[in-house]
């Protein structure tokens, strides 16, 4: 047994987690249902893709990777076209909120709500080489809350974005959306949030799952066992939207509640048993049989 415990303790100390955050406050979107838009003025000519296709792939990538984590309540959804005629989305520098001193608002990509994608051709700051396929950052942050983020696709003359397969585009966009919702890079090379793209990236790594669970932990609207115990009444009273974002399963809650109810009954009955035994002992002492 001692050997087993020793082995356990050794294995427990093995390294495993490495996710990092994009903001020093650990900011995340307050509303767990975040929409993805694309600017109406994006043409994405050099990126070699239409803006409609780009949005389709971004939404598909978000669902394929980030929406598949049951321990996280983040839900990424299609927003549609973000109507704007502001050409700064297409030509100016992307500035993170904590970089405002070097990024005056007048000459940088505007801040937005939710997540907005644009095709950008700035070669000075955003895409100095075609190594960069896309960049992203929360642009509107207040304390621990991200209000909006921008994802820019490399639309410079040397862009290789259009050479990627659809699957690679999904993983590239999902990586950028990972930054947009608050995650930084990971030093785990199997992670989606590793800095380098891989054409074999098919699913999230455990490190990505840990990161998104940290930023958007599933809450189940309070105490699920109690909700189940009382026939799910607490669930029925909750707000529909919150309920759908948090993975609270009503039938499962009832099942769990049923089993927990049985458990409570057993505990109560055993308390009776204990008290009865105690009473009998006391009785024997107080009123000995003559």
């Amino acid at each position: 047994m001692i050997k087993i415990i020793s082995l356990t303790l050794i294995l427990v100390s093995l390294p495993s987690y490495a996710f990092r955050l994009n903001t020093n406050t650990g900011a995340s979107f307050n509303d767990k249902e975040v929409k993805i838009y694309i600017t109406s003025n994006s043409t994405c000519t050099n990126a070699g893709i239409s803006k409609e296709d780009l949005l389709d792939i971004a939404v598909s990538g978000a669902k394929k990777f980030w929406n598949k984590v049951p321990t996280s309540n983040l839900r990424l959804k299609r927003g549609g076209i973000y109507n704007t005629s502001d050409t700064k989305f297409l030509t100016e520098k992307l500035c993170a909120k904590d970089d405002e001193t070097t990024c005056p608002t007048a000459t940088s990509v505007p801040t937005v709500n939710d997540i907005v994608i644009a095709c950008n051709n700035d070669t000075t700051d955003n895409f100095p080489s075609n190594v960069f396929l896309a960049i992203s950052a929360p642009t509107k942050v207040s304390g621990k809350s991200i209000k909006g983020s921008v994802v820019l696709i490399n639309d410079t003359a040397t862009s290789t974005f259009g050479n990627l397969s659809r699957s690679e585009m999904e993983s590239v966009l999902a990586h950028e959306i990972g930054h947009a919702v608050g995650l930084g890079h990971s030093n785990k090379d199997e992670a989606l949030m590793y800095y380098e793209n891989s054409d074999s990236m098919k699913r999230l790594s455990q490190d990505d799952i840990n990161g998104i669970t940290y930023l958007y932990p599933n809450k189940m609207n309070g105490c699920a066992p109690l909700a189940g115990l009382f026939g799910g009444t607490m669930v029925l009273k909750t707000n529909n939207k919150t309920q759908s974002n948090n993975k609270f399963n009503f039938p499962l809650s009832l099942l769990f509640g049923f089993i927990m109810s049985l458990l409570v009954i057993f505990i109560v009955r055993n308390l009776f048993l204990s008290s009865h035994t105690l009473l009998r002992i006391l009785q024997a002492k107080l009123f000995p049989v003559q």
Partner: peptide
């Protein structure tokens, strides 16, 4: 705290979580 990681042809500063967060799930 902070951590410096690769970011293409340069490095970038990222941040280590500084609080505890809890996720709750029910399973079948």
């Amino acid at each position: 705290g902070e951590d410096t990681l690769d970011n293409g042809d340069s490095t970038e500063t990222y941040y280590i979580p500084d609080e505890r967060k809890t996720a709750y799930n029910q399973t079948l």
